[in-house]
């Protein structure tokens, strides 16, 4: 199979996976317990790494931009600079990449192991639809939890930025906060929450597809896991570009 045919084939399979999972949310049986469990694992479980990432990203943004802003005597705009960068771009993308690494790999490895140890076959043999029981809860959890994680990362990024501005450059926290507040538009916040919804869908569907199509024993599980993280990360970055463009058009974002 040539790469283009393979790509179209995989795209079709992922689309079917998403559609079946979506439909299963509206029909019985619903595994609500599994939904909550996955939300806890994915959301609460990823909180520490996402918060750390956000905090230090905010800090390093101030560290790198403050001297330049100071050169142009607009250091009071440091808060605006960090807030817009974080909320529009870095918060959603970095959170998605961290979650892709932590959760995408875990999903692909778990489902892949279940495939090679025939647990998925057993599930089907006992009358359970693996899409309904395994894929839908994970997709749902990612779609719900990634925007929340992103908001948390944004807040911690602003805290990190304010701390660096205050401790290293002696800027009053109130100046940083006012600047950030003036710089953030409603459209930025909407865009910053809409993007992770799509990123969650991309990470979840790629990870589930790679896991469920695992072949070749334990070596295959390793391959699926790696492929899941790499492919989901690339798609997150590609999607980010097109989503940014679409949001700019729809929400009139990015004027300043």
């Amino acid at each position: 199979m040539n790469p283009l045919t393979r790509f179209i084939f995989e795209l079709q399979e992922i689309s079917v996976l998403i559609w079946r999972s979506f439909v299963s949310l509206f029909t019985q049986p619903r595994y609500v317990g599994e939904w909550i469990k996955q939300m806890d694992l994915i959301g609460v479980g990823s909180l520490p790494i996402v918060l750390l990432t956000g905090f230090f990203t905010g800090g390093v943004l101030v560290l790198q931009t403050f001297p330049t802003l100071e050169y142009y005597s607009i250091q009071n705009e440091a808060g605006r600079s960090v807030a817009t960068s974080l909320i529009r771009e870095l918060g959603p993308v970095l959170s998605a990449l961290m979650v892709s690494g932590r959760i995408g790999s875990a999903i692909a490895a778990e489902l892949g192991s279940m495939v090679v140890s025939q647990q998925i076959d057993a599930m089907r043999a006992f009358g359970t639809d693996p899409n309904r029981k395994l894929v839908a809860p994970r997709l749902l959890a990612l779609i719900f939890m990634l925007p929340l994680l992103t908001v948390a990362a944004d807040i911690f990024g602003l805290i990190g930025g304010a701390m660096v501005a205050n401790q290293l450059y002696n800027q009053e926290v109130s100046v940083f906060v006012n600047s950030a507040r003036n710089g953030i538009q409603i459209a930025d916040i909407i865009g910053g929450v809409v993007k992770p919804i799509f990123f969650g869908l991309v990470i979840g569907s790629v990870a589930c597809h790679k896991g469920l199509s695992t072949t070749g024993g334990t070596v295959g599980v390793g391959k699926s896991t790696t492929n899941s993280v790499v492919i989901a990360s690339i798609w997150v970055i590609i999607f980010d570009f097109f989503l940014s463009k679409a949001l700019q058009y729809l929400l009139d974002m990015g004027r300043i």
Binding site: S113, S117, Q118, Q119, D121, A122, M123, A125
Partner: peptide, 13 residues
């Protein structure tokens, strides 16, 4: 109507 015994048991870990 069918019960299935898998090669390695295929128990849910």
């Amino acid at each position: 109507k069918i019960g299935m015994v898998f090669q390695e048991g295929a128990l849910f870990d």
